[in-house]
């Protein structure tokens, strides 16, 4: 499944959202995606330029089920989120993955 990117303007800098007394820095879609691509490239030792937003990460990274869980853990730790496994069911491209993560930021 490849969800298209939101049509809203891609912010070049983080947008601020006020939640009660807290100021939460919201990451723009492209920044979240970029961080995922960088993290995947470093962790799985794949040249960054070989990874594109719409690539199938199972194929591009050459990962199996256990390595997918490893990637999930890396993403949770990096973004300080909790991402249930079942939310990744059917997700195979980096862009959709970024959208799932952004929904938890």
């Amino acid at each position: 499944m490849n969800e298209s990117a939101p049509r809203e303007v891609l912010h070049s800098s983080p947008k601020q959202e006020i939640c009660g007394d807290d100021v939460v820095l919201m990451k723009s879609p492209d920044r979240t995606l970029e961080e995922i691509l960088n993290l995947a490239a470093v962790h799985f030792k794949v040249p960054r330029e070989k990874l594109g937003p719409d690539d199938d990460f199972f194929k591009t990274l050459g990962i199996d089920s256990l390595q997918t869980l490893d990637l999930l853990t890396k993403l949770e730790n990096h973004f300080h989120i909790e991402l249930p496994d079942y939310e990744l069911q059917g997700v195979s491209d980096f862009r959709t993955l970024a959208n799932r993560i952004r929904a938890r930021l």
Binding site: D64, S65, T68, L69, D85, Y86, L88
Partner: peptide
């Protein structure tokens, strides 16, 4: 044989 047996 796919990569997602633990994600379903």
């Amino acid at each position: 044989v796919d990569a997602q047996p633990y994600l379903s």
